[in-house]
Design a protein around this nucleic acid. Structure first.
Lengths: 224, 224
DNA sequence: ATTTTGAGTAAACTATTAGTATACTTAAAA
DNA sequence: TTTTAAGTATACTAATAGTTTACTCAAAAT
């Protein structure tokens, strides 16, 4: 059985190499412009071999996105540990700042996640259920942090008591997707038509969301 | 010159017929699944003829979206006239309710607009500048209503005075896109994982946004 | 030592589709 | 009666997801 395990490990490694190569291709010329021939050439394998490891092009996209989700969660958890915050509002701030940090430092992964968040769901044909499930699980984990911090804030009295933490977390996530999406797609529009930089837009949107959940007076001091 | 005008009119008519046919095709099987051959067959013309009227597939998509924007603005303006509201908060409510009404009654147009709002901007190759410009103009017009109502609310004292109307309007639009997008893409997820209907999600998101802009106490009575 | 097998290669093939080109018809304007 | 614009029919190009076929080769099994 030792040999089989060994070959399994090798397979996993090779799977990883192919995803690495696909990342290089997708991130440099974009998913739509990337052909499977290019991915195969970059990986140093035949297209046939690629299709032995992955069902479809979109399956590889999912694997890359899952890497992104994992990175985001790692970053989020690292920030949580580092900050050692007591206040729930600080926790919420940490969450949003982690999203922002991730969007800056892991821009291509972030873009992939945002595209997934705004993509038609019926385009998942060709993706293994396991991968779709994992995406949900990872999304739920992030959602859990948001929801838990809101709960803590309600106990503390820093978050408005009348809010339902679960629903509020979902709505905040929807708002956040909208904000990041707008920054991504309409950056030039914001600058040209409204003379607003994307940083300013992000900062203000973030402040709005904090204001939204905070008990009156709890967030005022943040305004610079 | 009368003949030339006449033939121009005919051309415009035929252009419209082609867009009608493309709508039927796109709305029934989706933009991605629709081929130009299908559009041509549905329109009763040759593909060549279609390409005499439109540069590209995505150009036709834009024309359809522009129709959608116009419909939305018509609906918005009709609601404004009908309601004859005095309060600026009522106006803002009318704007959001018009979006909601439009999303329900003109679902396919709405979907097209939402897809555009969340689509990569560098995928506009093959679209005439005139069409892109018109989209911006129409977007700006809707934005203007939002921004103007916020201004009025500030004067009246129903909207928080410290908000910048222009920036707030942009952020609200980003939030709105996020909310509608989430409803569209994650409907099943909301129900299955969080037992929240899409109506409840919409209502609560809407309430959040109203709370966000309102002076304390101004919006409380709305909660059922 | 010899055979079998699995994982790979090379390269051709299918099917679809955006967009173009060529050669023609036809009805109306000149 | 001739010219022209707008259309038709049809075949084409180029790209690309995904498949198939015939092969190679090293390692495992016998």
């Amino acid at each position: 059985m030792g040999r089989k395990e060994h070959s399994m490990e090798e397979k996993e490694l090779r799977r990883g190499y192919i995803i690495d190569a696909a990342e290089r291709v997708f991130f440099s010329i974009g998913y739509e412009n990337a052909s499977m021939d290019k991915v195969a050439r970059e990986a140093g394998f035949t297209k046939k071999t690629i299709y032995m490891y992955f069902n479809s092009k979109v399956q590889i996209y999912f694997e890359i996105m899952i890497r992104g989700y994992r990175l985001l969660i790692t970053m989020l958890e690292a920030n949580f540990k580092e900050k050692k915050q007591g206040n729930a509002m600080d926790e919420l701030r940490t969450i949003f700042l982690s999203f922002y940090q991730f969007s800056q430092e892991c821009a291509p992964y972030f873009k992939a996640i945002m595209e997934y968040e705004t993509k038609d769901c019926d385009q998942y044909t060709g993706v293994e259920d396991a991968a779709i499930d994992e995406c949900y699980q990872l999304g739920e984990r992030i959602f859990g942090y948001l929801s838990k911090s809101l709960d803590r804030g309600k106990e503390e009295g820093s978050v408005r008591g009348e809010l339902d933490s679960e629903k509020t977390a979902l709505i905040l996530w929807a708002f956040t997707v909208g904000v990041f999406n707008t920054r991504e797609r309409k950056k030039d529009y914001l600058k040209a038509y409204h003379n607003i930089s994307s940083e300013e837009f992000m900062t203000d949107s973030f402040y709005m969301m904090m204001h939204l959940i905070a008990v009156k007076g709890e967030v005022e001091h943040e305004r610079k």
